[in-house]
Design a protein around this nucleic acid. Structure first.
Length: 474
RNA sequence: GGCCCCAUCGUCUAACGGUUAGGACGUCAGGUUCUCAACCUGGCAAUCAGGGUUCGAUUCCCUGUGGGGUCACCA
C-alpha cells in the first residue's frame, strides 16, 4: 500500500508555525517514502468561518514549498458522507441521538465542578428507544448525535513516537459526533476522511494524544483498520506553555512579512522535535527529505527560540548573497518588497548589509542613513585616539584626494589604497582619516567601512557629505 | 481536580549501560580592525530528586517533584 500522509488544518486565516511544523513533517515523511502528501480543509466549524482563509492557506503553503499532492478535500462539502456514516453507527448501536439542551449540559458541568468531579455527559439520552428519539425528531426538536462509549473496557492505542497508551473507557464520556447544525465534529469527520482518503500515517500535534482513544474506538465501531499515528511534541512559548499569540509572532505570514526566508524557517522548524543524529544543522529541503525519520522525533516539547531562527535566517542571507545565482535573484526580488522606494539599489544594499541583518525588514531601518544623512554632532567625527586638528586635516586630505579620482577608478580597493597612502604621507594614523570619513558619510559611529560607503554613495554625494563634515568642524 | 504525556547546559539537542556528558544558538573574553557586523580562538554553562536493577546508570524499573496537554455541539 502506498504511504500517504495528510495535513488537515482548519481555516483560521493564517498558518500557525506549529501547524507549519506538522505540515513539514507530513511532507518530509511522505516524500522520503515516495508517498503522497494530501491536504484536507477541516472547516466543520461554521461559527469560525473566515473569509478567504482557504486561499490564504494555499498561498502560504506554496510559499513555504509544501504543495500537496492530488485533490484537496474540503469537509464542508461532504456532509452527506458524514450523515451516512453516522446513521450507520446509530443503526449498529454505536451512537445515539441526544436531545439535551446546552443549558442542561452547562448545569451538569457546573454541578460536577462544585463537587470537584470531572464534567462528563451523564448519558441521559443513551437509553432512549429508537421510536422515542424518532418522535422527538419528528416534532422538530434539536438534537446532536453522541458516540456510545463501551463500558468497562480498556482502549489500547499505539503511537509511533509516544509508544503504547491505554485508557479506561470509564474515563471517557459519550462525545458528540454530529452537531445540532448537522455538521460533524472533528473526531467523526477526521476518522471518516482518513479512512476514505487511505491515509496510512496520521501525523499531528501532541494536543491530540488525549483524544486518540476516542478515535480508536471510532475505527473499531466502523470496523476500519486504524492508520499509524504519529504525535509530534508541541512547540512552546518561552514560558513553556503551548505556543500562542500574545507571546510573539506565531503566524507564518508574520515571519514572512518581517523578512524571514522560507528556507530558513523550514530549516529551523525541522530541528524542533527532530534531529538527524549528527551535528549538521543547515539543511536544504532535499537533504531533510533524505535524512528524515520518525525514529528521531523527540517526545518533549520544544521552545520556539527567535534567537536561533535569527541565526538561521542570517546564515541563509549571508550564504545566498555570497553565492549569487538564481536564489540570489529571488532574494533581491523579495527584498525589493521591503524597500520599494530604493528598488534599483537592492543589490548594493544586500552586499553592504548582508552580514549585518537577521531579516530583510531590518535592512530598511539600517540603510536609512544612506538616503538621509542623520544630523550628527561634530565631536563624533573625532576618533577617540585622534584630535580636532588631525581630523580636520584628514578630511581635507580626503576631500582633495578623492576629488581628483576619475569616475571609472571609483572602486573599493583603489580608494582604500589611495586613502592609506595619503595618510602615510602626512603621518596620519587610520583613525585620523578613515574614522572621520565614515562618520561624515554615515553620520553614525557604527557602519560599514568608509570605502564601501564611498562606493555606494558615489563621488558627488560623498564629497558633498565630507564638505558638510569639514564645515561642522568649523 | 480526573485522565494523558514529558524531564540532559538559559534555548534546540547528541550520547548500542562503560564518553573528561559532545555540537549549535545565546552569552562572556581574546584575536583581526578606523567602528559595527562577519570571521577565528577560547571560557562559563546540564543529566530534577530519592530509591532500586547492575561490576557499572543520562540511559532500565518504581516513587516523588516539576512542567505541559486535555477534559465543548472548537479544531
Amino acid at each position: 500500500m502506498k504511504l500517504k500522509t495528510r495535513f488537515a488544518p482548519s481555516p483560521t486565516g493564517y498558518l500557525h508555525v506549529g501547524s507549519l511544523r506538522t505540515a513539514l513533517f507530513d511532507y518530509l515523511f511522505a516524500k522520503k517514502n515516495k508517498g503522497e502528501f494530501a491536504l484536507r480543509i477541516e472547516d466543520t466549524d461554521r461559527e469560525r468561518f473566515v473569509e478567504d482563509a482557504q486561499e490564504k492557506l494555499l498561498a502560504v503553503l506554496a510559499k513555504m514549498g509544501l504543495e500537496h499532492d492530488g485533490d484537496m478535500m474540503v469537509q464542508s462539502l461532504r456532509l452527506d458522507t458524514y450523515h451516512k456514516q453516522i446513521n450507520k453507527l446509530i443503526k449498529d448501536g454505536h451512537a445515539y441521538y441526544c436531545f439535551c439542551s446546552q443549558e442542561r449540559l452547562e448545569k451538569l458541568r457546573q454541578e460536577a465542578q462544585a463537587k470537584k468531579e470531572v464534567p462528563k455527559y451523564d448519558g441521559l439520552c443513551r437509553h432512549l428507544k429508537p421510536e422515542e428519539a424518532q418522535a422527538k425528531i419528528d416534532k422538530g426538536e434539536s438534537y446532536v448525535v453522541r458516540f456510545k462509549i463501551p463500558e468497562n473496557k480498556i482502549v489500547e492505542a499505539k503511537d509511533l513516537v509516544y509508544g503504547k497508551i491505554s485508557v479506561k473507557t470509564q474515563d471517557l464520556d459519550d462525545f458528540v459526533i454530529l452537531k445540532s447544525d448537522k455538521y460533524p465534529t472533528y473526531h467523526l469527520a477526521n476518522v471518516v476522511d482518513d479512512h476514505e482518503m487511505k491515509i496510512t500515517h496520521v501525523i499531528r500535534g501532541e494536543e491530540w494524544l488525549p483524544s486518540l482513544p476516542r478515535h480508536i474506538l471510532l475505527y473499531q465501531a466502523f470496523g476500519y483498520e486504524p492508520p499509524a499515528f504519529v504525535h509530534l511534541p508541541l512547540l512552546l512559548n518561552p514560558d513553556r506553555s503551548k505556543l500562542s499569540k500574545r507571546q510573539g509572532d506565531v503566524a507564518v505570514e508574520d515571519f514572512l512579512a518581517k523578512g524571514y526566508l522560507s528556507q530558513a524557517l523550514i530549516n529551523y522548524i525541522a530541528l524542533l522535535g527532530w534531529n538527524p543524529g549528527n551535528d549538521q544543522e543547515l539543511f536544504t529541503i532535499d537533504q531533510l527529505i533524505k535524512e528524515f525519520s520518525l525514529e528521531r522525533i523527540n517526545k518533549a516539547g520544544a521552545i520556539f527560540d527567535i534567537n536561533k531562527l535569527n541565526w538561521f535566517n542570517a546564515e541563509y542571507i549571508k550564504a545566498i548573497v555570497e553565492q549569487g545565482g538564481s536564489r540570489y535573484q529571488q532574494l533581491v526580488e523579495q527584498t525589493a518588497e521591503f524597500i520599494p522606494e530604493h528598488k534599483d539599489r537592492i543589490d548594493d544594499l544586500l552586499h553592504l548589509f548582508g552580514t549585518r541583518i537577521n531579516n530583510l525588514s531590518e535592512l530598511k531601518v539600517m540603510s536609512e542613513f544612506l538616503f538621509n544623512l542623520p544630523n550628527y554632532p561634530a565631536e563624533m567625527l573625532i576618533f577617540k585616539k585622534s584630535d580636532r586638528e588631525k581630523t580636520t586635516q584628514g578630511l581635507n586630505l580626503a576631500l582633495g584626494t578623492l576629488g581628483k579620482v576619475e569616475d571609472k577608478l571609483w572602486q573599493e580597493e583603489k580608494l582604500n589604497t589611495l586613502i592609506q597612502n595619503v595618510a602615510e604621507e602626512h603621518k596620519l594614523s587610520p583613525g585620523d582619516i578613515f574614522w572621520p570619513i565614515r562618520v561624515a558619510l554615515s553620520g553614525l559611529e557604527k557602519s560599514p567601512s568608509p570605502v564601501e560607503l564611498l562606493v555606494f554613495l558615489g563621488k558627488n554625494e560623498s564629497l558633498s557629505r565630507i564638505k558638510q563634515a569639514i564645515a561642522k568642524l568649523g
